[in-house]
Design a protein around this nucleic acid. Sequence first.
RNA 1: GCCCAGGUAGUGUAGGGGCCUAUCAUGCAGCCCUGUCACGGCUGCGACACGGAUUCGAAUUCCGUCCUGGGCGCCA
Length: 429
Amino acid sequence: MRIPIADVTPETTEAEIIGWVHEVRDLGGLAFYIIRDRTGFLQVTIVKKKAPETVVEATKETSRESVVRVFGTVKATEKAPGGRELIPDTFEIISKAESPLPLDVAEKVPAELDTRLDNRFLDSRRPRINAIFQIRSNITQSINDFLFKEGFVNITTPKVVAAATEGGTELFPIAYFEKEAFLNQSPQLYKQMMMAAGFEKVFEIAPIFRAEEHNTTRHLNEATSIDVEFSFADHNDAMDLVEKIVIQAYESVSNNCENALNTLNVDLKVPENRFPRITYSEAIDIAALGIEEDISYGDDLSTAAERAIGDEMGEHYFITDWPTSIKPYYAMPFEDQPEICKAFDLMHPRMELSSGAQRIHQYDLLVEQIKEKGLSPESFEFYLKPFRYGMPPHAGWGLGMERLIMTMLNLPNIREAVLFPRDRHRLVP
RNA sequence: GCCCAGGUAGUGUAGGGGCCUAUCAUGCAGCCCUGUCACGGCUGCGACACGGAUUCGAAUUCCGUCCUGGGCGCCA
């Protein structure tokens, strides 16, 4: 009966393990086979004069990264990693790995990101890579748990859509029988429609697609968006919620992923306080002091500006009170000051994590704003119709999963936070 | 999209007109080795992205193609 390697302790008497041959150190009359499974490493020690001949034969046949089953007695010893080693009675090759390997799992020699992504299945055998995705899984679970507990309903919205949903970004066109269709850039319109559907609180964690030809360490063409929308709420409620979500994601990882964090050598600091909130206008002033080029009210924040503000803030923060002109049409303008709106961005010092807003729920105002942006209300009829039949006030946000992971773990490249990233050039695997 | 830097054994690299029969590490194969934990020692194997040009001579210079990384823009 196979047991996980982590369960093999110095007190264990005998054990059967199944795992990958991580490393071989053959000293002649004595050989060490380091076996790795999802839970850890175990040294299999073979004294060639004493070991059964079948074991010696099998170890001769095996190769690094082959899958093997080893059964034997466990010996407590200070000389072995973890204070124990396995003295095999049987050693069976279940699946032999070809040689040479496309990359070195044991990390004696580094591999470039491109090589690693081409061989992601092997790359992911490395404990450091595995740890990232253990943590990602935990974040997904904790956010789901949190939102379910808060009474949010999990929804699934279409990724194949007929028209550009909110403008602002390039879409991937696809062939949909005799019609043209697109991969959805965001579930925005659908989650708002669910407010009209009376669901009151909805969320979705799902892929979004952007056809931007960007080439950076913080953009993906297929990303995962954590999307939330809730009724009878304003932008302040939305900010409170996204702040709670981020903090509790940090807490969850900190409490449940100690091994993964150690493997990654990350000393995770859980944000303790509420995130500071500065207005767009204040952000512009900070940026103007910190960067060379001119920046003035009404401009979008450049990368350099974001960085300058991030350096100044030094922690997560919100930018509020954005000019209505540079936010999407569905952001609610302030009643007394319609040139600014109830939109916000949640920023990490390195980059933007989330943007959200109280949404416009009045049909006439929404149509007006759509026209203001140079879009045609006719092409949004499916979206606008619900606003005519009792749309509650509502607010929401979208939070980039990969950016959350990247900033939490201080990963150098957003591709590190995705198993199989889609970027400007990569479509395989 | 614009700009910059690259492409050398399976992997990661050195080498920037002749010292290249191309360096080192790792890997692989063989031999030696009974406490390794980046085991060690010896021997061997394995590469200049592709096409063209310049030159007596090109891994090295130039042009084109393909591929990659990064910065900016756009975007989240």
